[in-house]
Design a protein around this nucleic acid. Structure first.
Lengths: 249, 249
DNA sequence: TGGTGTAATTTCATAATATGAAATCTCTTA
DNA sequence: TAAGAGATTTCATATTATGAAATTACACCA
């Protein structure tokens, strides 16, 4: 049994950066659904502003999604408080900056800031990545120890040359991250990427999110890395100070 | 007959800035729907990431909406190209800046930039306002003459002391806006607000959106208004140059 | 510890809505 | 202007959503 919610979700998922506009038949084919069924759904989605139909009769994601996304709680706070600080980092280092949160034992990216100068990095808002082999995830785990066991129990698969696949080594790594106040990931999740992450804390002291800056290994190591780390940590601290409290995820 | 799309849309619309978290019964009451019906929908919405359930069992808008909103076509381009320029305006003048597009004869705001220093202005992304009595709308109308007639035919209601309610006067106003390259709205739509708007054009020369800067009348007239206008126009031109082409709405 | 109240969640027979094959419309291209 | 491709509509039927009532979960308090 497939519910209407799932059908709608699938339809909206058809639209991507590479295919921002789709015709009725294109959607129906992609989803292996009947064209008239899709048509009914798509028409109603249009009438709600969730899709719009452009001049070539292709459908596109609509303004209603913008409206809703602006009410997503953490997004509100992040836009007001964290965005300008993240943009500062991007400008200073020509990198890509993310904010990630733990979601069911994985890292979910809720903010991404890059510019046309940023060294390109393939990440997307809403994506998840494993927690044990990303700088963001390791920060979140080290400051949320209750999540360590469930993460480990799913297994530590090798994903890149330096992935930590030994439970004991991971625990040691998380301890030193907790001690240092930041995490590094160098070729641990994706070949060629180097990330720095630091905790963002609420007023209760709980680490609710992590600030992350990524770039190609060669680029990042060609910079003054300690200086970068210092700025990531300081920025995360500023965000923590400003954010106050977020209760979600 | 009420479709599943509408039901879902209504549920998501329940979540606002003021009520970012709602329980099952709260939603059911608001919508006058059966609690178990709402529950079924809400559960599936959670499993798709469209809602999330927080630690107090309240539901909130979820990360999936962020993901989709990032694929909304104009949002992509606007975030990359226009956002930094808008932020520059906000910083320089301590105002609130919008980008609006024509949508079925009304102005739909697709971007809003403000800061904690901005003089507060009550506007929201996704909102619509009448075209004939807002600076943004007047710019869009004056550069898209085919929309003038349908707008007028809905009537020109007085909404504030200076609303233009005479068709001839509006046509004159639109001509001079076309000649000047910018529009002013002073107490025309909302009491106490003063707006400046300038056209954003695609490479075809078509005006596809308008840049708008608003503030309280007293604040705006206390500044160097011509200087502000100059900057709004210049910024809109820069965005036009960068944006290239947007085909939606 | 147990009792009470509130809200979330589940169940399942029934009511209501979604489905899809085929017909029709609407462009675009030759 | 004819042919083709895709969008759109129709309507009898299949499928899914609905909601009253039962159950569970949990917080608060004596």
């Amino acid at each position: 049994m497939i519910s209407s919610v799932q059908k709608i979700s699938r339809i909206l998922n058809c639209f991507t950066k590479d295919e921002p506009a789709l015709g009725n038949l294109q959607i129906a084919e992609k989803l292996n659904m009947n064209a008239s069924t899709v048509h009914h759904l798509v028409r109603t989605l249009c009438s709600e502003g969730i899709l719009i139909q452009d001049s070539q009769k292709k459908y596109r994601l609509g303004w209603k999604l913008l409206e809703w996304s602006n009410h997503v709680m953490y997004q509100q706070d992040i836009n007001t408080e964290a965005l300008p600080l993240c943009e500062g980092l991007v400008r200073r280092f020509n990198t890509t900056v993310h904010i990630g949160m733990l979601d069911s034992g994985e890292v979910r990216f809720v903010l991404r800031v890059a510019s046309s100068n940023s060294v390109p990095v393939p990440t997307f808002i809403g994506d998840t990545k494993p927690a044990y082999c990303t700088s963001t995830g390791k920060v979140l785990l080290s400051f949320n120890p209750s999540m360590i066991k469930p993460t480990i129990s799913r297994g530590l698969l090798r994903r890149a040359p330096n992935t930590i696949t030994c439970v004991e080594k991971l625990k040691d790594e998380l301890s030193s991250i907790r001690a240092n106040g930041y995490a590094i990931s160098n070729n641990e999740n994706e070949l060629g990427l180097y990330g720095i992450a630091a905790p963002i804390k609420s007023y209760t002291g709980q680490t609710i999110a992590a600030l992350n800056m990524v770039g190609p290994v060669s680029y990042m190591l060609g910079q003054d890395t300690p200086y970068m780390i210092h700025h990531v940590v300081k920025t995360a601290e500023s965000i923590s100070k400003e954010l106050g409290y977020i209760s979600v995820l």
